[in-house]
Design a protein around this nucleic acid. Structure first.
Length: 597
DNA sequence: CCCCCCCC
C-alpha cells in the first residue's frame, strides 16, 4: 500500500468552479488528441473518488508525456489549473480542466495500481455525493445574472470570474458560445489593402491567457469600432467572434485557429481586480542553432544575449522610395550559435547594446541571405529587452560564465565546411534532392575535386567604379563604357568568371566560380589572368585540387530553355586530418564500436 | 476579407 492520500472530492469541486489548491491526484491514462498542428494530450485523472476524462495537459507539459513521466498510476500534485466555463451541473459535461503546472509526487511504476474505485464524474454526476453546485460567489455586485449558468450571450455585466470564462485553447470553429478573458500582447497599426479581391482596412491583436494564445483581426467596421478602444497590455472579456484555421505562415502565434471580430463581438475591459495574474507574454523559444533548419518567412520566438550591434543605417525600399532605418544586432545563446537580427525604425534607433542586454523577440521573421539565415523584426514582432523571465535570467547567468566560447554563425553567407547550415551532401544528391527546382535558390555544400577548367575567356573587363563590376564596352579609343553607370572610364578591372567541373565519387557538375573564389583557387589575381595572352598556367596547377564548395543552385530560363545554374558561394580548404577523424568517429558509431557516448 | 513587413 501507499501512504499517499489523494485529495478525494477535489475533482468534483474543481469542475464546479471551486478554488481548490494543490490537489493530489492519480493519472490513470493519457491519450494524444488527434488532429490539429499542435500536439496536445488528454489525461484520465482520478482523485480517488471521481475520474475526470475531460482533463487536458497544457502544451508546455507535453515533455512529461513524451519522456514517460506521466505514465499510468503516477501521483501528481496539481499546482496550477484552469477550468472552462462551468457554473451548473449540466454544463459539467462540456467543461474542460486544463492542467498548467504539476509536480510528480510518485512515479507510476513505484505505485503500480489504481487507488480506490473512482467513478466517472461526468456520466453520473447526479449520483455523486454533492448536490448541484454553482460557481463561487463573485466579488462584485453584478453577479446574480451571471451566476445562472454557462452564459451564452456574451458578457452580461462587467462581471465574470476566471471560472466563467473559456480558456483560449478550448476555442474552435465548432462552438461559438464562449467568453474569453485575455491580455492583448500585441496590437498592429491600421493597415489598408487594395487587391484583386477588393479593398478595406484592418488591424490585428494577439490575445493571451493561461492556456494559450490566439490572433484576432478586425476588418473595416470592426476596425473602426475597436481600434481606439483596445489597448496593448490590457485585459478584456471578449465574446462572439468567428474562428477559422490560422495560416501559420503569417504568425508565430501558437494556435491552429485565428479569430475575426464581427458586428456581434463584445469587448469589455477587465477591472484591476478581475485581471488577476493573467500572464503577459508566452514565448516558444527556438535555440539559435536550429534557425538553420527553419524555412524563410516563418516566424519564431528567440532569446539571446546581444553581443554586438552595428551602427544605425538607412535603406531605401525596392518597390517604393521610402527610407527605412535599420540596425543589425548579433545574438548568441546556449546552443553556441550566433545570429544576425535586423531591427527597424524606433527599435533600431533606441537600441543600446552597451550592456549586452538579453533580447527576447516574439515572432521574429526568418530570412535567407546568401545561404545563411538571418532574422528580421516585422510589424507583428514584439521586442523585449532584459525580460524578467526565467529563461532570460538563466541565459544571462550562462553567458556571464563564458569567456572564449566560439559561436557557430547561422547568418554567415559562406560556410563551405561542415558547420551549421553546411548541409554537406554528395554531388549526386543535387539531382536527387531536386535542388534549385523551386522558386528560390537552394544552397548546399559538397566536397569536390576540380576535374575540368574552361581554359579561355575566363575574365571580362569590368566597370572600375566601386561595387559595380558590370561588364564595360571597349570603345576602342582607350575608353570603356559602363551601361549601368551610364559613364565612360579610361580604365577597367579584370574580373573572373570561371566555370569548372567539380566531381566526387557520385557525380560531376559544372559550377561557376566568381572573383574571390576563383582567385583563391588559382592563387593569382584576376588582373594577372586577364593580362596573360595565353591560358594562365595557374589553371593547370589548380586542376585536381579538392575543396569544400558552398553551392547555390537555381533554375535559369533562357528563352524556352530551362537550365540548372550552379554558382559557388564560398570555398574552404579541406582539413583532411580533421575530416578523417570525423569519418572514423562516424564509422565507429555506425558499427556500434567504441564509446561514442 | 489581410498576409505588406523593407537593405545587403
Amino acid at each position: 500500500m501507499t501512504d499517499i492520500k489523494l485529495s478525494e472530492g477535489s475533482l468534483k469541486a474543481i469542475m464546479s468552479g471551486e478554488d481548490v489548491q494543490n490537489p493530489v491526484m492519480q493519472i490513470l491514462g493519457t491519450k494524444k488528441i488527434p488532429g490539429g498542428n499542435t500536439e496536445r494530450y488528454r489525461v484520465l485523472i482520478s482523485d480517488g473518488v471521481n475520474i475526470n476524462s475531460f482533463a487536458m495537459l497544457a502544451t508546455q507539459l507535453n515533455d512529461l508525456i513524451v519522456n514517460g513521466s506521466l505514465c499510468e498510476f503516477t501521483i501528481v500534485q496539481i499546482k496550477r489549473h484552469i477550468v472552462s466555463g462551468v457554473a451548473s451541473n449540466s454544463a459539467m459535461n462540456r467543461s474542460v480542466m486544463i492542467i498548467l503546472e504539476l509536480d510528480i509526487i510518485k512515479t507510476g511504476t513505484e505505485i503500480g495500481f489504481k487507488i480506490g474505485n473512482p467513478q466517472s464524474l461526468t456520466a453520473d454526476s447526479s449520483s455523486t455525493q454533492q448536490p448541484a453546485v454553482v460557481a463561487k460567489p463573485q466579488t462584485n455586485g453584478s453577479s446574480t445574472a451571471a451566476a445562472s449558468g454557462n452564459r451564452t450571450n456574451g458578457i452580461g455585466g462587467a462581471g465574470g470570474s476566471a471560472t466563467q470564462t473559456h480558456p483560449i485553447v478550448s476555442l474552435s470553429p465548432y462552438q461559438n458560445k464562449w467568453t474569453i478573458k485575455a491580455r492583448v500582447t500585441n496590437k498592429t497599426p491600421i493597415r489598408e489593402w487594395n487587391n484583386a479581391r477588393g479593398s478595406g482596412k484592418l488591424f490585428s491583436i494577439d490575445l493571451l491567457d493561461d492556456s494559450g494564445e490566439i490572433r484576432a483581426t478586425m476588418f473595416n467596421a470592426e476596425c473602426d469600432r475597436f481600434h481606439d478602444m483596445i489597448e496593448k497590455d490590457k485585459v478584456y472579456f471578449i465574446s462572439n467572434c468567428t474562428l477559422k484555421p490560422a495560416n501559420k505562415k503569417f504568425s508565430s502565434i501558437n494556435n491552429d485557429y485565428e479569430m475575426s471580430f464581427t458586428h456581434a463581438t463584445t469587448v469589455i475591459p477587465c477591472n484591476e481586480e478581475e485581471v488577476g495574474d493573467m500572464p503577459s507574454v508566452k514565448y516558444t523559444f527556438v535555440p539559435l542553432k536550429s534557425i538553420v533548419e527553419i524555412s524563410p518567412d516563418e516566424n519564431i520566438d528567440v532569446l539571446g544575449v546581444c553581443i554586438d550591434a552595428a551602427e544605425l543605417s538607412s535603406v531605401t525600399g525596392k518597390t517604393n522610395q521610402k527610407t527605412y532605418t535599420k540596425r543589425d544586432i548579433t545574438l548568441v545563446d546556449q546552443s553556441q550559435a550566433s545570429v544576425t537580427m535586423t531591427l527597424w525604425g524606433k527599435d533600431a534607433e533606441t537600441f543600446d547594446a552597451s550592456n549586452k542586454p538579453v533580447v527576447a523577440v516574439k515572432a521574429a521573421r526568418v530570412q535567407e541571405f546568401q545561404g545563411g539565415k538571418t532574422l528580421s523584426l516585422s510589424m507583428s514582432s514584439v521586442l523585449s529587452l532584459n525580460p524578467d523571465i526565467p529563461e532570460g535570467h538563466k541565459l544571462q547567468g550562462w553567458y556571464s560564465n563564458q569567456s572564449n566560447t566560439k559561436f557557430e554563425p547561422v547568418s554567415q553567407r559562406t560556410g563551405g565546411g561542415a558547420g551549421a547550415g553546411g548541409n554537406m551532401i554528395l554531388i549526386r544528391e543535387i539531382q536527387d534532392q531536386q535542388l534549385g527546382m523551386g522558386d528560390k535558390a537552394d544552397y548546399c555544400s559538397v566536397r569536390g575535386i576540380i576535374q575540368v577548367f574552361r581554359g579561355s575567356n575566363t575574365t571580362y573587363k569590368a566597370c572600375p567604379s566601386q561595387d559595380c563590376n558590370k561588364k564595360v564596352i571597349d570603345q576602342n579609343n582607350g575608353m570603356y563604357r559602363c551601361e549601368k553607370c551610364a559613364k565612360e572610364y579610361n580604365t577597367f578591372n579584370y574580373r573572373l568568371i570561371l566555370p569548372v567541373m567539380i566531381g566526387d565519387w557520385t557525380n560531376s557538375v559544372w559550377v561557376t566560380l566568381f572573383q574571390a573564389e576563383a582567385e583563391s583557387i588559382l592563387g593569382v589575381t584576376a588582373q594577372d589572368v586577364g593580362e596573360s595572352t595565353e591560358d594562365h598556367p595557374s589553371l593547370k596547377k589548380a586542376l585536381f585540387s579538392q575543396y569544400a564548395f558552398r553551392l547555390r543552385a537555381k533554375m535559369e530560363h533562357y528563352n524556352d530553355e530551362k537550365k540548372l545554374k550552379i554558382t559557388c558561394a564560398g570555398i574552404k580548404k579541406i582539413d583532411h586530418l580533421d575530416l578523417s577523424k570525423k569519418f572514423i568517429a562516424e564509422i565507429k558509431e555506425l558499427a556500434g564500436l567504441g564509446s561514442a557516448n
